[in-house]
Simulated scan of single mutants.
Amino acid sequence: MDYFNEKKTVLRMADTPEKIKALERIITSADAHNDVEIGRWARDFLIDVCLTVGFPKKQLQAFSWLISKWEGEDNDVYIDTEDLLWKYKWVSEHVPTFDEVSKAQIDGLLDDMRVKFEQENYSLRPYYKVCTLAAMRMGDVKKAKELFEKWSNTKEDVLNDCTVCERQDQLHYYYFVKDYEAAKKKAKPIIEGKQRCAEVPHLTYGIMALTYLALGDAEMAQQCFDKGYPLVEQQSSLIPPLGQLLRYLVATNQTEKAREVIDTNLETVLQAEGGLDRLIFLQAAYPLFDREKEADLVEMTEALTAKFDARNENSYYQDCLNAY
């Protein structure tokens, strides 16, 4: 069967959209031949690659299949429970970025995550963390603060994220609630190069450029842009920090550079699966859009803003847009 040979080829490929297409072909062929084990392997691998390349919807589809197999009474394939719950964190974290997913659906998914973690006797610390990040993405400051306390005060176990990723998400929270001094303190080991991970400091520099700017440290803010932009340029899985860096340029009147960033990255942004990722970048670019020549981008930004606020039942993203 051809998909056996394609599996060997995939193992030698770098993480790219082409690798995702190859894995999808393997899944289609494996399903057609009722080869459940290869189908499981390809979906499991696809989830990992999507995290790097930036296709959260494809990730969710593959994860849904794994969950259904894990839950099934007539289980015809082995699913590693600990690995599955680890991946549940990734999927749950991205779901609020989809504008077509309702608030009730997000709440339902998060509740299902909680039930499964409790059922398997794992700590709820990762659950509270993901819920905090969901509240932040949905612009609910009060709920984020309540959940952050639960996240901070719940014990760790083997499903807790690494120290660096945990620090990154904590400094993001402090930025979100505008505790800029706390964000600066939490980010210090990362900014000084003492701690790093797969996506850190990639995720850090955008937040910290805006944090240092808010604290009046123009030199450090510019350093964050200079170091951060090469890490996220045209990276579909890193559009939020790209948008934050663009917002920094606009806020500091570096219009020519900001226009260059928009032109270089716009195609990548418009192809993003997560509507919120697009919105973060588009809102940052919004003040520079030509109201006649780029009317479609203006309309897209305003429509996405309204759609997310309607879903989230608040005016958080409209308030962000009005801040310009």
Score class of each variant (00 low, 15 high):
residue 36 V to P: 07
residue 98 F to N: 15
residue 91 V to R: 04
residue 193 G to R: 07
residue 104 A to C: 04
residue 113 M to W: 03
residue 128 Y to T: 15
residue 116 K to G: 02
residue 7 K to W: 13
residue 114 R to G: 13
residue 191 I to Y: 03
residue 124 L to E: 12
residue 270 L to A: 09
residue 196 R to W: 01
residue 245 L to G: 09
residue 178 K to W: 01
residue 202 H to G: 06
residue 76 D to V: 15
residue 105 Q to N: 14
residue 207 I to R: 07
residue 315 S to P: 00
residue 42 A to S: 12
residue 5 N to V: 05
residue 265 N to Q: 07
residue 54 G to Q: 03
residue 59 Q to H: 12
residue 15 D to G: 10
residue 133 L to Y: 05
residue 89 K to W: 03
residue 279 L to C: 07
residue 114 R to L: 05
residue 144 A to W: 05
residue 131 C to R: 15
residue 184 K to I: 02
residue 257 K to L: 01
residue 248 Y to V: 04
residue 104 A to E: 15
residue 261 V to T: 11
residue 132 T to S: 09
residue 190 I to H: 00
residue 161 D to Y: 09
residue 1 M to P: 13
residue 283 Q to N: 08
residue 49 V to G: 01
residue 144 A to M: 10
residue 67 I to Q: 11
residue 303 A to P: 02
residue 143 K to M: 03
residue 78 Y to E: 04
residue 79 I to E: 07
residue 2 D to H: 10
residue 16 T to K: 07
residue 248 Y to T: 06
residue 304 L to V: 05
residue 287 P to D: 08
residue 193 G to C: 01
residue 51 L to R: 15
residue 55 F to R: 15
residue 322 N to W: 00
residue 115 V to L: 08
residue 279 L to K: 05
residue 236 S to D: 10
residue 148 F to A: 01
residue 92 S to R: 08
residue 219 E to K: 10
residue 280 I to Q: 06
residue 208 M to T: 07
residue 247 R to K: 13
residue 206 G to E: 00
residue 214 A to S: 15
residue 324 Y to I: 06
residue 35 D to P: 12
residue 308 F to T: 10
residue 164 V to D: 05
residue 285 A to G: 06
residue 29 S to F: 03
residue 155 K to F: 01
residue 319 D to P: 02
residue 123 S to H: 08
residue 144 A to Y: 08
residue 298 V to F: 01
residue 264 T to M: 04
residue 109 L to A: 04
